[in-house]
Write a protein that binds this DNA or RNA. Structure first.
Lengths: 199, 199, 199, 199
DNA sequence: GACTAAACGAGACGGTACGTCCTGTCTTATC
DNA sequence: GATAAGACAGGACGTACCGTCTCGTTTAGTC
C-alpha cells in the first residue's frame, strides 16, 4: 500500500510524456542526431521546455527514453524466436530480418542515435543492456538452449559468445558501413556460427 | 633543385598543424567528446580559430585528422603481423594486445570519439575505412593468406568475414561495455574463428 | 435582500487575502521591485498562485493593493493636518515628517515600487490618484483653506498648484536621489511656498 | 600615451554599437518598457545577443545608454538658454517647450523608461545626474545668474532650489498624470517661481 | 454528524525571455 | 602574407517566472 501526498496529475503527465517521446522519436528519425534540439522536440510536442527538463536531465536521456518506450510498447507481444526445430533455418530468418531492419533509413537514424548515446554514456549503456539488450538476448538464448537439447549446438557453448559471433559482425558492418547487409551475408553469419559452435 | 620566391611558410604551417592536431588529441583523451570545443583546441594549440577552419571544415574533421595523424606516425614502422608459423599463437598475441589497448582510458576516449564521428558521418566513415581500416585489414589478411598456404585456414574462406568474426565481437563488447576484455576472451575469439574457418 | 446558495467562505477569503497582501508588502520592502515575483508572494503567504490570480489580474495590481491596504488601515484615524493657527509651523511639521518617512529604507523601497507601477500604468495611476492622493490632498487643502480664511495665504491661490510647489520638489529630489532630504530642506520648501502664495 | 594589446576592432564595434543603441531607442519609443526585450533589440539591430551582453550588463544599462547617446548627439549644439533680457519671457518659452515635449507619445514612453530605471537603480541615477541632468541644470543656472545680475532674481537664492520649484511640479504632474501640461500651466510655474524668488 | 460545493495549496503545464556558450565567419594589428 | 586574437551573427542551451489549468483537500454551511 502506498501513501501519496500531492494531487495526482497523472493524466496530463502521461499525455505530455507521450507527446514528448513521440516528437523525439519522429525528429531522431528525420534528422541527424546532432541536429535534433530540445527546443525542436518541445515545439513539435506542443510542450514547454521546462516540462521536458522536469523529467529528463539531458537530450540523451529523452531520446533514450523515447527509444526505450518504443520497444516497451511491443513488450506485450512475444519476444520469442521462431522454433521450427531447425536452428539454421530459424536463425537465418531472424538474421535476415535484422539485416533488413538496419537498412531502413528512419530506423537506421534512430539506432545510430541510440548507439551514439550509449557509446558515450556508461549509465545509459547499463540501462540499455538491462532494459533492451538482455531481454532480447534472453529470448535468443532460449532458442539456443532448445537447439542444444536437440543436439544442434555444442552443449558446452558459451551462449553469450555465440550471440556475439552471430550478431557483432552484422552490427559492426552496419555501424561502419563497411559492407552491404544482404540476405546472403545474414545467412553466412549463421553458417559461420554453426560451424564454430556445432556439436 | 627548386626556387621559392617568398618566405617559406611551410615550416610555420607544419608547426601550427602539429600543434592543432596534438591539442585536439590531448583534449579528446581528457574530456568527453561533446565537451571538446574548437575554441579549446585553438587555445590549447596557441592558434587562432581561423587557422583551424582554414584547414578543416568542422570539429569532426579536425578530431578525425588528429586520430589519423596518430596512426600515420606509426606508418614508417611495420604494419605487419607476427608470423611464427602458428596462426593461433600469432592471432592470440594480436587480439590480446588489442583488448589491452581498448582498456586504456585515454585511448578508450579517443576511439569512442572516432567511432561517434564515423557512425554519424558517411564521408568520414569512408575516409576511415580507406586510410585506417583497410591498410590494417590488408596486413591482417596477408597473415591469413600465409596461414591458408600453410594449411591452417580454409583456402576458400572469405577473409573479410574471417576478420569480422574475429574482431567484431571484441569491438561490440567494448563499445557497449557489455563484458570485460580479458586475455581469455581474446583467446576464445581466436579459437572460435579457427573452429569456424579451420581447414 | 439577497439569496445566497452556498456557504459563506468569507472568513477564509479574508484570511488568505490578508496573507497575500502582507506577503507582498514584506517582499516589496525587502527586495528590489523587479525581483518580487508572484511565486514568491504565494510561497510566502502559504497560498496557491491561483488564489492570487483569482483576485488580482497582475503583479502590479497585487502590490498596488498591498500598498492601498496599508494606508486604508490608517483610514479610521484622522487624515487631518494639524492646525495650530500658524500655517508655516504646521506645514513644516508635515513636510519634515514626510522627508523623514521617505528616508526610511523599507518605506523607500515600497514607494519606489508604487511609483514604478503608476508611472507605467495609467489605470493604476488613476486609481492611485482617486484612492490615495486625492484624499490626502483634500486633507491638506482643508488646512490651506483654513489658512486662506486666516489671511495667511492668498485667497485666490490655486490650491492644487500650492500643493505641487510644496511637495513636488521633495518628491523629485527623492525619486532621482538628487539631494538630501533634511529638515532644513523641508522647511525651505514651506518658506518658498509661502513666499509665492502669501497674502 | 596608452598601450593597447589586441587589435583595434573599433570600426565594427562602433557600427554594431550604434545599431544596438538605435534599435533600443526605437523599441522603447514603440512599446511599454517592460515589453522591450533584449532579444528584440538584438533582432532589430541585426546583432547577436552576445554582442549586447559583451558591452552592457543588463537591459536597463542598454536602454540607459541609448538615451544618453541620444542627448550626446545634441552635445555639439548649444546647451544654452535664450537670454532676451527678460527672465519671465525666457523661462516661459523653455517651460512651454518642455511641457510640449513631455506630451509627445514616443518621447513620453522613452522618458518613462528612463525614469523607471533611474528610480530603481542608484548607480544609473548617479550617471543620469552627472551626464544628463547636471549639464542641463548648469545651462539653466547660467541664465538664472544672468537674471540675478540684472536684478530680476534674488541674488541670495539657492539656484538648485529655484530649478526644483520651477521643474518638479511639471515633472510630477507628468509622471503621475495628475493634470494637463498646458502652456498656461507652464507659465504659471514661472510666475510662481518668480514670485518666490523675485528680488 | 454526514454531506456538499466553493475555495483552497500545491504544483504541472505551455510559453517567453533570460543570460551563457559555442560555432563558423570576418576583421584588425602584428610578426 | 599568413597569423593570433578575438568580435561578430546566429542559435541552442538550461533556468526562472508568467498566467492557466488540474488535481486532491479543507472548510463552512445545510440537511
Amino acid at each position: 500500500m502506498t501513501y501519496e501526498k500531492g494531487p495526482d496529475h497523472s493524466r496530463r503527465k502521461e499525455r505530455s510524456r507521450q507527446a514528448i517521446l513521440s516528437a523525439a522519436r519522429a525528429l531522431v528519425m528525420e534528422e541527424a542526431y546532432e541536429k535534433v534540439t530540445v527546443e525542436a522536440i518541445a515545439a513539435r510536442a506542443g510542450v514547454g521546455k521546462q516540462t521536458i527538463y522536469r523529467r529528463w536531465p539531458s537530450k540523451s536521456a529523452i531520446v533514450f527514453a523515447a527509444l526505450l518506450a518504443l520497444s516497451e510498447d511491443a513488450d506485450g507481444q512475444s519476444v520469442t524466436l521462431p522454433d521450427t526445430g531447425d536452428l539454421a533455418t530459424d536463425l537465418k530468418l531472424v538474421m535476415r530480418a535484422t539485416a533488413h531492419e538496419f537498412s531502413d533509413p528512419p530506423f537506421d537514424k534512430l539506432i545510430r542515435a541510440l548507439n551514439t548515446e550509449i557509446a558515450n554514456d556508461p549509465a545509459l549503456a547499463a540501462e540499455y543492456r538491462e532494459k533492451l539488450a538482455q531481454p532480447l538476448d534472453e529470448a535468443k538464448k532460449t532458442r539456443l538452449r532448445s537447439a542444444q537439447r536437440a543436439g544442434q549446438l555444442d552443449p558446452e557453448a558459451d551462449l553469450d559468445l555465440v550471440l556475439e559471433v552471430l550478431y557483432a559482425p552484422l552490427f559492426q558492418r552496419w555501424l561502419h558501413r563497411s559492407g552491404p547487409l544482404t540476405p546472403a551475408y545474414a545467412d553466412s553469419l549463421v553458417d559461420v556460427t554453426l560451424r564454430a559452435f556445432g556439436p
